[in-house]
Computed example of a mutant assay.
Amino acid sequence: MTTEWTINEIAKLTNLSKDTIRYYEKEKLITPKRSDNNYRIYSKEELFKLKYIAVMKYARFSLKEINTFMLLFDQELSEDCNQQGKTLLEKKISDLERAVRHYQAILQLLKSPIRMTFSS
């Protein structure tokens, strides 16, 4: 099984565009190696990070929040690192639960019969 991929291959594996992957590199969320001919080479670590980034983007994490998480991934395990990750996740869970309640209220409103009265 391959453990290194080109940008074309990693784009297919992650369902991300090459431009998106390059943007994540520019934002220092990932750091692929370079081959002798200067092509990007992506390892299992970048594959994992890209998949995780895609999930976090879908869950409405900002790039700043994702960057914080990527920095935490690269740190040694510690109580402080664990607490930072936990705090970030608790905030995001709270934000998502608030959004779910908001969308549930919208759905309820849209499903209820609309009574319109017109006056002349």
Rank of each mutant, 00 (worst) to 15 (best):
R60H: 13
I66C: 01
Y23N: 09
S120R: 04
I21M: 04
M70G: 01
K92Y: 07
L63K: 07
T31P: 03
V100W: 03
Y24F: 00
Y23W: 05
K26C: 01
I66M: 02
E97I: 01
K91Q: 15
T3P: 01
K28A: 08
Y42F: 12
K44H: 08
R98K: 10
I114D: 13
Y103N: 07
E97H: 04
L71K: 12
S43V: 07
N37K: 05
M116D: 05
Y24S: 00
K64E: 06
L89W: 09
L77C: 12
M70Q: 05
T2S: 15
L77R: 15
L89D: 01
M116S: 10
Y52T: 12
L96H: 05
E45T: 13
F69C: 14
R34P: 11
K26L: 06
Y103P: 03
L63S: 03
M56Q: 09
S17G: 04
I30H: 00
P32L: 00
K49C: 05
L96A: 09
C81M: 10
K57L: 11
E27S: 11
T20E: 10
E9Q: 02
D80I: 15
Y24K: 01
T68G: 00
V100M: 11
I53P: 12
K26T: 09
M56W: 07
E4M: 08
N8M: 03
Y103T: 06
T20P: 01
T2E: 11
I41K: 06
R115C: 11
I7V: 03
H102Y: 07
Y39N: 14
I53V: 09
Q75C: 11
L16Y: 01
Y24G: 00
L29M: 05
Q84S: 13
L63E: 02
A105Y: 10
F118L: 14
M56V: 08
Q75L: 11
S17Y: 02
L107P: 08
L72R: 13
E25S: 02
D80E: 15
Q84F: 09
I21V: 00
S78D: 00
E25D: 09
I106H: 01
Q75T: 09
L72F: 10
K91H: 12
L72H: 09
D80C: 11
S120P: 13
D74Y: 08
T117F: 04
T6I: 06
K111I: 12
T87F: 13
L88Q: 04
K111R: 12
